[in-house]
Write a protein that binds this DNA or RNA. Structure first.
Lengths: 212, 212
DNA sequence: TAACTGACCGACCGATCGGTCTTATTTCTT
DNA sequence: AAGAAATAAGACCGATCGGTCGGTCAGTTA
């Protein structure tokens, strides 16, 4: 049987983390204030401390929560595609769709923001972000390597290099979509086009990638 | 004759802005605290208010200061190169050199950090950052267009697209250099390689770009 | 010498920060 | 029915936040 106390706590916990992740994209993971967060949720500040004993614990939990969101909404859909260059490009497209889609976070990309914010602030939060970032780069790299062994991409392709470029082009899109002057052609389209052309140049069978 | 008081004020003003720009790359443009800044400089907090009437004014001044730094240390050296694709690539290299060189800021790139930090925070600070960002993208785009009219790049090249890609690849470098695990091959080398290959594919005369 | 200006300081303000404490309510266990 | 466990609330803490105030001092002008 389910413990009603734990169940209720878990519900609150999830609701708080949802709000924390969203708020962090706007105010920053550090700028996230417990008072504001509590007020936005209609909860007392000390109610938050019942779940996380410090702000840092909440920040780490928020990172974990955002990671889970990312896995479900970005990574998983792409893994449904057949192994190879199609899966790799699907991951890139899935990421861009997440940024511009209806479930998009109010302040852009949680991880991109947090990475820049904490890149020069030693501590557990930075370390956790760095690990998550490394895992993401590793995923891009692994899918690229798979595309090579599948014979989709040329054998002399450097997986690290391709992963670097895809990551760079995707991250810039979410920033420019929020910051660049409106009349600018859709940055998401540019990010898609850039990776598409790059992969097409490395790709043996042009039919594996969309034409346009 | 020079007013000694004004001269002294200008000296401290510059010293404060230098420290403010450096500190902002670590703690964020918002996380920059007047108390900490004053203490680091051996100045009283109220001394700062004699120069800028509010924190926001100081932030805007810091942006202007960083912009001047960027112009002197990144843009100007590149403009010494002959017009065309060489100048464009020199700008990219100059930027990477600034990130990794001896004059590098302690927390990476002032603008990249500030752009992500303020991309979702309406106000004068965000607006100023957005303008500066637009000007930077415009410069990349203009140099690309020049390279086309010079006949260096293929006539069907899209300057916006090239500018987008160069900006993305450069920005990712400074982040990954600080965040990615150390054994990773130099991100600056990856950023250089990526743009070099990209431009080489568009370039009519291969001798205009370095071989390696 | 007197009047004035700009740079700068120390004390202080209300607000908010992260965090602690005590207490009340709800829910499961026995 | 009674107690244990977990969620929450409210009052409160010291520290720090951005910002104001009155005032000192060095240098300029008349």
């Amino acid at each position: 049987m389910v413990d009603g106390r734990l169940a209720r706590g878990e519900r609150t916990r999830t609701a708080v983390l949802d709000a924390a992740v969203a708020l962090a994209t706007e105010a920053g993971l550090d700028g996230l204030s417990l008072g504001q967060l509590a007020e936005r949720l209609g909860v007392s500040k000390s109610g938050l401390f019942a779940h996380w004993r410090s702000k840092e614990e909440l920040q780490l939990a928020a990172i974990e929560h955002a990671r889970a969101q990312w896995t479900v909404q970005v990574v998983s859909p792409a893994l449904a595609k057949p192994r190879g260059v199609r899966r790799l490009f699907a991951l890139h497209e899935s990421r861009l769709a997440f940024y511009s889609g209806p479930r998009a976070l109010p302040g852009g990309c949680f991880f991109a923001n947090a990475e820049f914010e904490y890149s020069a602030r030693p501590g557990p939060v930075r370390d956790r972000i760095a690990v998550a970032f490394g895992e993401w780069l590793g995923l891009l790299e692994r899918l690229t390597a798979e595309a090579i062994t599948e014979g989709d991409l040329r054998a002399d392709t450097d997986p690290h290099q391709v992963a670097y470029e895809i990551e760079a082009l995707g991250m810039a899109a979410v920033l420019q979509a929020r910051l660049a002057p409106a009349p600018n052609p859709d940055p998401y389209h540019r990010a898609r086009r850039a990776v598409l052309d790059r992969l097409r140049a490395l790709c043996a069978d042009p039919d594996l990638l969309p034409e346009e």
